[in-house]
Simulated scan of single mutants.
Amino acid sequence: MIDSDVFDFVERCRKHTATGPLLSDLLETVRNLGFEHLILSGVPLGGQKLAPMVELNGWPAGWFERYVEAEHAAVDGVCLYSAKTLSPFLWADVPAKWSDTEGSRRVAGEATEFGIRSGFAVPMLSVHHWQSVLSFASSAKSCGPSPREQVQLITMAVYAGMSIQALSNVDEEVDGVLTDREKEVLLWAAAGKTSSETSQILGVAERTVKWHSTRAREAFGVGTTTQAVVEAVRRRLIHP
């Protein structure tokens, strides 16, 4: 990749008005550096759930759901180390204190089932979270971006993060997008509660909870409740 490709991406960042096109653009650009997947999210701390903190989800189908359901963020060495440093790093360079544990090795092993074997992470300061990280993933057993390519990745990560911030600051017409009950259902989903648990908390039938979840998904045009939670947080309709 040449530097002008990076500058072209930076220029396009200013024109994106939604997260979907921004994600597609970034994925297409970094593919030239050998990275097929990526995720941008806040770094969970103190038992926080990952799903509501995700701002760009370019992980393989199925892997995000497994990662969230298994609460891998609590043991994943890459995720844990992202909370300890602001220096970009190769996944392979995560210190053994975080990477050489049973839980972290399990996460790495499961990731290979989805074509993820190596990566490069760019931690960043965030106005929404304690810290954020944009993690680029590769199917190669050992990705090896050169020092110049690492600078290119860092530049694109920073501008993608800035674009997300700009989009979140755009005045949106949010009143009426969700009902109060739909917000409650998504809030409890963000806390990791099942439909059954949420029904007991709210004192309604489980089918009612599922109906509100469906309405919330339809309101945002997404396929899963997790995605609806992410969008509701991004629009600041709920605050987990």
Rank of each mutant, 00 (worst) to 15 (best):
D180S: 15
L80H: 05
Q48A: 15
P145Y: 15
L153E: 14
D175A: 11
L125W: 06
P147C: 06
G221H: 05
F114Q: 07
L186N: 03
Q131W: 11
K141W: 06
H129D: 09
G144S: 07
K183Q: 11
P88G: 08
G42H: 05
W188R: 11
A51P: 11
I201F: 07
T112M: 09
H239F: 07
F7M: 12
I2R: 14
L45D: 01
L22Y: 00
K193Q: 14
E110Y: 04
E173P: 01
T17H: 07
R106L: 11
L90H: 12
E113S: 10
R66E: 04
S199V: 10
T29F: 05
I201Y: 08
S163K: 12
I116E: 04
L38D: 02
A216C: 12
S138R: 02
A111C: 09
Y159R: 04
S118Y: 03
D25Q: 10
L26R: 03
P60D: 13
F64P: 03
A216M: 01
L134F: 01
W188L: 14
E184H: 11
L86Q: 12
D171G: 13
E184F: 07
A191S: 14
Y159H: 05
L80Q: 14
Y81T: 06
V54N: 00
P88A: 04
T112C: 00
D175T: 10
S142F: 06
L178P: 03
T198E: 00
H128W: 12
K183S: 02
L27R: 07
R14T: 04
V222Q: 11
H129L: 00
R66G: 00
V6W: 09
Q131R: 15
K141G: 13
T198C: 03
A92S: 15
E65N: 13
E36K: 13
W91N: 08
G58I: 04
A83D: 01
L90Y: 10
L186K: 04
N169D: 12
L186F: 12
A70C: 09
V204W: 05
T225E: 12
E11I: 05
R215Y: 10
L38A: 15
M124D: 02
T226I: 06
V94L: 10
V127C: 07
E231L: 08
V43K: 07
L202N: 09
R66H: 13
E65C: 03
T155W: 02
R66D: 07
E69L: 14
S87D: 13
G20D: 13
D180N: 12
R181C: 00
G34L: 06
C13S: 15
M124E: 04
V233N: 01
W91I: 06
P147M: 01
L56D: 06
T198L: 01
R148N: 05
W63M: 13
S24K: 04
H128K: 12
I238E: 00
T208C: 01
P240Q: 05
H128E: 11
P21Y: 08
V185C: 07
D25W: 03
I2D: 05
N57H: 10
Y81N: 09
G34R: 10
W188P: 00
V43M: 08
H212N: 03
G46P: 01
K84R: 15
V75G: 09
D25I: 06
E149H: 15
A121V: 12
V78W: 10
L167R: 00
E149Y: 13
V233A: 03
S132A: 15
C13K: 00
W130S: 14
S138L: 08
T155N: 09
S168C: 08
G144E: 14
R14V: 03
W211K: 06
E28T: 08
V75M: 04
